Computed example of a mutant assay.
Amino acid sequence: MLNQKIQSVFSLFAAVIVLLLAGCAQVPPEKDDPRDPLQSMNRPIYDFNMDVLDAYVLRPAAVGYSKVTPQPVRNGLVNATNNLDAPIDATNSLLQGKVSNSGVSVARFLVNSTVGIFGIFDVASEIGLVEEPEDFGQTLGVWGAGDGPYLMFPAYGPSTARNISGDVMDAFVLPSISLGTPATIGKWVIKVLEARASLIPQEALLNESLDPYLFMKDIYLQRQLYELHDGNPPLPKVEKTEEETANDDFFENL
């Protein structure tokens, strides 16, 4: 049995490597993106994730989960997993200098863990303690770390060099310290299933896009920028033409 599992793992990695090699040098020049210098490797991984892992594992699991689990139970599971994230939100808020947000996350955890019965019911939101999600990737961004290259991981999906470090810290390191490994894995499974189930109604947008890979990348990077700036991302800088610059200089000298 152990040998079969080892062989399955090696077969999986071998398939990924074959896809990587096959996809290299297949990126059209017009699709070059400075945010995505590893696109020649990212694209085959994306294809493997969508055509193999998602099609045969993740999506069927999410569909089955949504069919057999009543919505009230799903809501309770989501509330409970969000409640377990509250200490992580509080820690990251504090590291980012958002002391009041950190206090709100601590209060939410205390209220929902007691009155909300281990977080199954989100009582805190009903009394005005609004959730303030923060992650370590955002913390690194606040500290001045750049995004780094866009990355696509087998079975994990899109990320960046900065965010993958934050995701590992938030998803495994901090929860393992406070919850233990079984609870951490259980929380992660629920989050993955819920996230995939929530995307089923939006599948048409992805499938109908001219380039699903670029569509997913743009959506992911825009969302990360939005979250990093707490919903107020800076407006992109627009380069002025020589005529506009000359006009500005003229009016400044009046």
Rank of each mutant, 00 (worst) to 15 (best):
K217E: 03
S93L: 08
L21Q: 10
F13R: 07
D170S: 01
G166P: 05
P29D: 15
D36F: 06
D51Q: 14
T69L: 12
R35H: 13
D147E: 15
D249I: 08
L140F: 06
F153E: 09
L235N: 10
A204F: 09
P72T: 01
Y150F: 15
G148M: 05
L199W: 11
N79I: 06
F172A: 06
P44E: 02
E243I: 13
D32F: 14
Y220D: 09
E227K: 09
I45H: 04
R223W: 10
P149Y: 03
D122C: 01
Q71Y: 08
G23M: 08
I219V: 14
A204N: 07
V63D: 01
T114I: 00
K187Q: 11
E244A: 12
S165K: 01
V123F: 09
L228Q: 07
L179H: 03
K98G: 04
T160M: 11
S198K: 11
R196H: 12
V130M: 11
V192C: 10
G116A: 12
D230V: 04
Q224F: 05
L151Q: 10
E242A: 14
V104A: 00
T245W: 01
N247R: 13
G141W: 06
V123N: 00
A171P: 01
P34S: 02
L214I: 14
R162K: 12
D85R: 09
F48L: 15
P154N: 07
D147H: 07
A161Y: 14
E134I: 05
S176V: 00
N207W: 00
T69V: 12
A145V: 05
T91H: 11
E194D: 15
S125T: 10
M216W: 08
R59D: 07
S40W: 15
G128K: 09
V27I: 15
Q39L: 06
V142K: 00
K237W: 10
T114C: 08
V18Q: 14
A195I: 00
D33K: 00
V18T: 11
A15Q: 12
G141D: 08
F250W: 14
G97A: 02
D218N: 13
G157W: 03
G64V: 07
P133K: 02
T160H: 11
W143Y: 08
I120M: 09
E30Y: 03
G23A: 04
K187P: 06
L225F: 06
S198Q: 11
I88G: 00
I200P: 02
A15Y: 01
V115A: 07
D248W: 11
Q222D: 15
C24E: 14
D248A: 02
P175Q: 06
R108L: 05
W188Y: 14
K187S: 09
T241E: 02
V99A: 14
M1W: 14
N3V: 07
T241A: 03
D170V: 00
E242T: 14
T184M: 10
S66Q: 14
V115L: 10
L94S: 06
R74T: 02
